[in-house]
Structure formats: structure tokens, C-alpha cells
């Protein structure tokens, strides 16, 4: 294959204040499948179109936010090679043993300069609820709720964004399709390890380790509308949308889970190849970049995080 090293986002572990409310939200409303509950109470979820054991982990805690975001690699050899490069860059790497999450091999973890824990792993079992691969139907049973196909990406808020860009592009081999540069420095970066418009994004922010949103991929604009219908029906706290991003061109709604973590349902988005030039937005146009129809940022986009 031509894509080597890291392949895609693999796991997001999210803190929730009330597990029962969180399960209703992520399973019944967003439409993820619950694949298991650990002895420590963590709940494991996957989208109906995801092949592997899980992609979202919920952990009950007394604060909201994100514990870590993990990327899946093509092999253990790649993980070992990244470990050497990460340590050579100057970050401390720790080990998470195989089986710490069900169906999941050994992971390595480290804290990037924005204060977020990132993990890499090579192995996860295929799910017994995986999509068919032989003469497949488009789904095994009809999708539920907002019909989320998969966990797609996250946007994280923290300091030292220039260092974060350097680390992800030079050490983890990400490329950067799009950025916002203000007169006093970089506000935001969108980075991908695949050819999706983004696998992870960062916004410069004084407090380290914050979560702006965790996004789920929907099939199309009609499903975004269906998701909005569900948000009104079930009184889900909505932030912005349905609208479109100029950056990535994705169609979107921002909303909140019952613990205040922002979610996004996301459809579309351009294809980002490594040899494409970087799209750059300046301070006069960033509003249209973030919310293409409103053409202005709202206060919540820049300040409401968990």
C-alpha cells in the first residue's frame, strides 16, 4: 500500500459526568453501537460502518473532556519506529499493555506540547459487528438515530500550536491541508495522516488539554438535516448549524453531549493529497472559513471547550 505508518484515527476516550445519559446520547441519538462495558465501567462504542472493535470509549468522571486520542498504525514495526522518533524529538513515551482496552493491542502514549495525550497502536481485533465484506449490503441492519458511520476526527484546544504542527508533520508524518494565520500568529491548523481533509485539528488556546469537539461522519447533507430533526425532537443542546465550513468544506452541526462535550456531525469535505498546497485563511476571512454561511465566528466557537 502507498499509505504507510499511521493510517487513521482509532480511539477517542471521552470523560462523561453520567454514563446512562451518555449511552442514550451516543447510542440512541448519534447511532453508535455499544460493543461492551469493561469491569472498570468504561463503555466501548463503534459506528455501524467501522470494522474494528471500537472507536469511542466513554469513561465516567467528575469532569468532562478528552482523556486521549489514538491513531492506528499499519504495523508494530511502525509504532516502534515512531517511538524512536518521538523520543528523539524530546517527548517522553509510556506504554499501555495489550488488553487494557478489550480487543486492543499494546499502545504507546505521549503528551504533545498542547497538553493532549496522543496514543499510537497497531492492533485491534475486527468487530463481530463489522460490516459484511462478501457481497455486502450497505448495512447489516438499518442505522439508528443520526446514522453516524464512523468516528471521524477531533478538534483540540491548547497552547504551543507551532510546536504541535512541527511535531505532527515532522515526527508523525501528518500533512497540513489548511490553516488560519492571524497577524500575531497561527490560530488554527487542520492536519491529516490520510487523504481526509482532517484527522485532527488544533486551535491555539491558553489552557492546555482541552476538547473542542469530537466528530462523527454522516453520509450526506440529507443526514445532517435528519440529525437536526433529532436534536429538536430530543431537546439536544445545539451550538451552530446546520451549516458548512469553508475550511474542509464539510457540512456540519455542532452540538453538545449530556456532559457538555461538543460533538459534530460532519458530511462531505474535500480530498486532501499530500502534494496539494496548503490553503491559508487570514483574520479578515476566518469567519467564512469556520462558518461559511454565517460568515462570522460566534463567541462559543473560540471559548466553549471541555
Amino acid at each position: 500500500m502507498s499509505q504507510e505508518g499511521l493510517l487513521r484515527p482509532g480511539i477517542a476516550q471521552i470523560r462523561v459526568l453520567d454514563m446512562d445519559e451518555a449511552i442514550t446520547h451516543y447510542v440512541e441519538r448519534i447511532g453508535l453501537d455499544m460493543v461492551g462495558k469493561g469491569e472498570d465501567g468504561r463503555v466501548y462504542l463503534k459506528g455501524y460502518d467501522e470494522f474494528h472493535h471500537h472507536s469511542v470509549v466513554l469513561r465516567e468522571a467528575d469532569t468532562a473532556g478528552i482523556d486521549f486520542f489514538a491513531f492506528k498504525a499499519d504495523s508494530q514495526q511502525s509504532v516502534d519506529a515512531f517511538r524512536k522518533r518521538i523520543e528523539a524529538y524530546g517527548l517522553e513515551v509510556d506504554d499501555v499493555p495489550a488488553g487494557e482496552q478489550p480487543g486492543t493491542g499494546a499502545r504507546i502514549g505521549f503528551t504533545v506540547p498542547s497538553g493532549h495525550r496522543i496514543e499510537l497502536f497497531a492492533h485491534m481485533d475486527l468487530s463481530d459487528q463489522a460490516p459484511d465484506t462478501r457481497n455486502p449490503y450497505i448495512w447489516k441492519s438499518e442505522p439508528r438515530g443520526m446514522r453516524a458511520q464512523r468516528m471521524d476526527h477531533c478538534l483540540l484546544y491548547g497552547p504551543n500550536i507551532d510546536k504541535v504542527e512541527e511535531f505532527f508533520t515532522q515526527v508523525l508524518d501528518f500533512h497540513l491541508p489548511e490553516r488560519v494565520d492571524l497577524p500575531d500568529g497561527t490560530l488554527a491548523i487542520w492536519m491529516t495522516v490520510s487523504n481526509k481533509a482532517h484527522d485532527i485539528a488544533f486551535v491555539n488556546h491558553p489552557e492546555p488539554g482541552k476538547l473542542h469537539h469530537l466528530a462523527f461522519f454522516l453520509e450526506n447533507w440529507n443526514d445532517i438535516g435528519h440529525a437536526a430533526d433529532l436534536m429538536s425532537r430530543y431537546d439536544i443542546s445545539r451550538d451552530v448549524g446546520p451549516t458548512r465550513h469553508g475550511i474542509t468544506r464539510g457540512q456540519t452541526i455542532y452540538f453538545f453531549d449530556p456532559s457538555g462535550n461538543r460533538n459534530e456531525v460532519f458530511a462531505g469535505g474535500y480530498t486532501a493529497y499530500k502534494d496539494h498546497p496548503v490553503r491559508v485563511w487570514d483574520h479578515n476571512n476566518v469567519g467564512r472559513g469556520i462558518f461559511y454561511y454565517e460568515r462570522q465566528l460566534n463567541d462559543a466557537f473560540l471559548s466553549v471547550v471541555t
Partner: peptide, 12 residues
């Protein structure tokens, strides 16, 4: 009062 997540998580 500022409005944020409306769900007890963000502190706005």
C-alpha cells in the same frame, strides 16, 4: 450570563 454547552461541562 454566558451560554456554553448547557450541559454542565464547559463552565461558561
Amino acid at each position: 450570563v454566558r451560554v456554553g454547552c448547557r450541559q454542565g461541562g464547559c463552565g461558561a
